[in-house]
């Protein structure tokens, strides 16, 4: 038994966690399970790929790898741009679809259904533009180095872990310490009361999308850096995202991240012990176990 799955699980779990934060925020504030959230990860990755390729073409110097990493400065710059652009994608979908349904007073399940349609459109649009063949930020190969006895990691993988921690701490501080975060939590607790208290619900909704999409973009880019970029990457991550957000307790940001890590680790150890072909079933097993035993999640409050 080696420790190697620990590293793979933590890396993949960080990606799942970042995506799950977005799912849990949309779920608790906009009150529906967004089946299109996975697509935001794919869009984030492809948008970053496009920006990074354009930068690389304009300023070839940006393509030279930074220090031990596999990519040059074009990727971090592209990541910042992509966080913003993916936010715009999310806002556009909200403006075109979800917002209109909300205003029409549609039931929650209609929103879920429309997110399902939006997911198909967004995913196949990527496939149409970029084709279904996988893409990479760089072709540079990375050699993993021993970090602990029996545990090897590439510099890229370690960077992913550090970045995930930084993002989660930042989001947590934003939600707990800033006025914007307090209004988000107020809307999540009680939308009617929050709007009576003078909180601008529409601003909160914009925040949710920007934040969720930016985190999804980072997750998608991380996945692109350590694995590859495919139009179906978001679809493949969707079940783990849902499993993590339910496991972590709907509405809990630290819960989503921790649960994401747990799902990632469970997947990694399943791959190690049972076989890679059953990886995708892990999330479902976790989901079923949670719904059976503790539907409010590990970190969720018991239903009143």
């Amino acid at each position: 038994m080696t420790l190697q799955p620990l590293m793979d699980g933590l890396v993949n779990g960080s990606i799942i966690g970042l995506g799950a934060i977005g799912v849990t925020l949309t779920y608790s504030i906009l009150r529906f399970a967004n089946f299109a959230h996975g697509e935001l990860l794919s869009w984030g990755a492809y948008l970053a790929l496009t920006v990074s390729a354009a930068l690389g073409a304009l300023l070839p110097g940006l393509g030279t790898p930074i220090g031990p990493f596999s990519f040059g400065w074009s990727v971090p710059i592209a990541m910042i741009a992509s966080m913003f652009l993916t936010g715009l994608v999310a806002l556009t979908v909200d403006w075109l679809l979800f917002g209109r349904l909300r205003n029409a007073g549609s039931a929650q399940i209609i929103l879920v259904m429309s997110s399902f349609g939006a997911a198909l459109a967004l995913r196949n649009l990527l496939e149409f533009i970029y084709t279904s063949s996988p893409a990479y930020f760089t072709t540079a190969l990375q050699i993993s180095r021993p970090v602990l006895p029996g545990l090897r990691a590439t510099p890229d993988q370690l960077l992913v872990l550090v970045l995930a921690v930084v993002m989660v701490v930042a989001v947590h501080l934003l939600l707990t310490r800033s006025a914007a975060g307090r209004s988000m939590r107020a809307v999540s607790e009680n939308p009617a009361l929050a709007s009576l208290a003078g909180i601008d619900t529409r601003a909160v909704i914009r925040m949710v999308w920007m934040l969720g999409a930016a985190l999804a973009a980072v997750g998608g880019i991380m996945s692109g850096v350590v694995v590859q970029i495919r139009p179906t990457m978001g679809l493949d991550l969707l079940l783990p995202l849902f499993a993590a957000s339910i496991l972590g307790g709907i509405g809990s940001v630290p819960g989503a991240m921790l649960a994401g890590l747990m799902v990632g680790l469970a997947e990694a150890f399943t791959v190690q012990i049972i076989g890679a072909e059953w990886r995708a079933a892990v999330s479902f097993v976790i989901l079923v176990a949670m719904l059976l035993l503790r539907p409010q999640g590990i970190f969720g409050k018991a239903a009143a």
């Binding site: 529906f32 929650q108 969707l238 849902f242 339910i246 995708a280 999330s283 989901l287 719904l291």
Partner: peptide, 15 residues
């Protein structure tokens, strides 16, 4: 919750 059924059926199809 009503959308847990949606998530569970989605997961079932994957499995």
């Amino acid at each position: 919750r009503s959308d847990y059924l949606a998530i569970a059926t989605f997961g079932a199809a994957v499995v």
